[in-house]
Amino acid sequence: MGKRKPVLGLSLLLVVVLSLTGCLGGGKTSGDKVTLTVAITGEGSLVPKVGKHEYSKDTVVDLKAEPADNWQFSHWDGDVAETNAAETSIKMDGDKSVRAVFVEAVDVSTALSSLTAEFVAAMEAKDAEAVLELFASDFEFGAFVEKDLFDELIDNQMVPELLDFIEDADSKEDFLYGIEMFPGLAELASELWDAYAAEGADHPEVQRLARECSLYVLKIEMILYLAQDPGDEGVGGIQAALSAAADEDNDDELPEQIIEWIENSVWRDETLFIPVEFFAHFLNMVFMAPDLTIVPAESGPEQIGGVWSHALAFQPSEDAEPEAYLEAVLRFSQAGDGWQIQGFEFDFTPGLQDMFEDEPV
């Protein structure tokens, strides 16, 4: 038994050494401390407050930023979970620094009124490039118009007339004659003919296709109207252009660019969107109109359903028909700390709408 004492003594010595090593900080344990340094730019309050704070390693610290009056939270600088959220967190797996950034609050209505003024100034300067620079970088489609403005025209006039035309047509070729230049319309019309022949006029699929064809025709009419020169003959001139293009004895056809704009314009969520390239062309057409002034709504920008917008009126000279002007609405989206134009919705006043209803293509 006596021969085992040195071994036991060595074991006790080893325990003491290991204990002292831990107490003297010779190794890292789960109780290690790390430092979070909190700073601020602008005016507001923070949790935890500005300064240095110690936490156990791997602790997740909640962060909260509250802006002072007339200030707004912008973002966090540092390794936080969500940089744009006023309330977020940070994992303390080492020493960390964070900074909350506040910016002076800008009244949204005032900011959007200023952006509208920039738009109006660029329009009045007839500078299409300057106008387009005000739009968001993801601006894919330009002006658009809501379909419900023309629901009565489509349902009560265009669809019945289209179905009557099918009834009177001698053949499918006769029905499709003259629309080959519009591939999308030709495909829809072909489907409509086949469905009508198989099911009759009252079948739901026939009614749906007839409405789709009517919407396509309405799209053609709108694009041609907006693409025309101010000196052209309005909707009557459009009708003549279509007739000439469909006349086999006439070599004149619509420009390929206009046909491309028509094909690339889409009805989406009951709204017609036109390509941004055509929107730029439309701007140039607007610039050619004499004595045109743009008047923003006196009520200023309004927020409806979470979307900010500002109404405009494009007014002609005093001797023009008071109803024959364009109304429009700018739609806005937030971009970082600022705002950009996200959409441009145009609306036909009664005088212009009557032109389409009186002389459909």
Rank of each mutant, 00 (worst) to 15 (best):
F102A: 08
G51K: 04
D168E: 14
D138L: 03
K33R: 15
P275I: 13
D347P: 02
H53A: 01
D138S: 10
K52M: 12
A335M: 12
A111S: 13
A244F: 04
Q334H: 10
D358K: 13
I341E: 04
E187N: 14
S30R: 08
G25F: 01
A197P: 01
L8D: 04
L12K: 06
Y55K: 05
D249E: 15
L218I: 10
A246S: 03
Y55T: 00
I223L: 12
D174V: 11
D69R: 11
Q315E: 12
L115Q: 02
V235L: 13
L163E: 01
S333W: 03
R208C: 08
F332T: 02
T116A: 10
G231E: 15
G9P: 01
Y55R: 10
L20G: 02
G338V: 13
D249R: 03
I238K: 03
W267H: 10
E191N: 10
W261D: 00
G184F: 01
I274A: 12
E270W: 10
G300F: 02
W193G: 09
T293C: 04
A121V: 04
A240S: 08
L14S: 11
A122G: 07
T116P: 08
D194M: 08
T110Q: 10
L254C: 07
T35A: 09
H281E: 15
V145T: 15
D148Y: 14
L242I: 15
V101S: 10
Q342W: 01
R211Y: 12
A240C: 02
G2N: 11
V235A: 06
V206W: 00
V159Q: 06
D62T: 09
A125S: 03
P48Y: 09
K96R: 15
P255R: 08
I258F: 14
E248N: 09
T293Q: 12
K28W: 07
L209P: 02
L46H: 13
G237K: 06
V15M: 09
F182D: 09
E318T: 11
V61C: 01
E104G: 00
L352E: 00
H53R: 02
F356V: 12
T59D: 05
F348N: 00
L224G: 04
Y225A: 14
L352D: 02
